[in-house]
């Protein structure tokens, strides 16, 4: 009978999840997490491509920053992560614009997530079976892009 307990101390302060505080949409949580949702597939490279131009190379960075949540060390456990800059997000009130690469523009909105989503991390190594699973954060808003990408003008 396998079992794993859950810890949710990290998020209890934000319970109950009543109405969101007024004062403009805040997309990221207090611990700094956010969700982007795109109606479609986002194609990103799996590795750093060869023969990049200088400007292209600048898009690839090593990410060593912490998550700002208590699993920061775990996140960085495999050393730093290579990250690619794939776009730019502008938020203006409830409206959001996401630029993908240099030629696509997605228009979306900031929306409430109902029910809110808890982010859990589950490490599957059997040695950690006794370690409780953490509910790291509860995310209640997201930027969602439902419409067809537009060209960048």
């Amino acid at each position: 009978m396998p079992s794993r307990s859950i810890e949710y101390d990290e998020v209890t302060e934000s319970i109950p999840f009543g109405d969101l505080v007024e004062g403009g949409p805040v997309i990221s949580t207090s611990s700094g997490l956010m969700i982007l949702e795109i109606q479609g597939d986002l194609n990103l490279p799996q590795r750093i491509p060869d023969k990049l131009t200088e400007t292209e190379s600048e898009m690839y960075v090593q990410d060593e920053s912490s998550l700002g949540i208590n699993t920061a060390d775990e996140l960085g456990s495999s050393g730093s992560h290579t990250a690619v800059k794939f776009g730019k997000l502008d938020i203006d009130g409830k409206r959001a614009t996401l630029y993908i690469g240099s030629s696509q523009r997605l228009v979306g909105t900031i929306e409430k997530i109902d029910p809110p989503l808890g982010l859990m991390r589950i490490l599957s190594e059997s040695s950690t079976e006794e370690t409780p699973i953490q509910v790291l954060d509860v995310i209640r808003q997201k930027a969602i892009f439902r419409s067809r990408p537009l060209p960048i003008m």
Binding site: L42, N43, P45, L52, E56, G101, S102, S103, Q104
Partner: peptide
């Protein structure tokens, strides 16, 4: 964004 298979785009 570049002329190889690693372009970034939304389908």
């Amino acid at each position: 964004i570049k002329n190889n298979e690693n372009r970034i785009w939304v389908k």
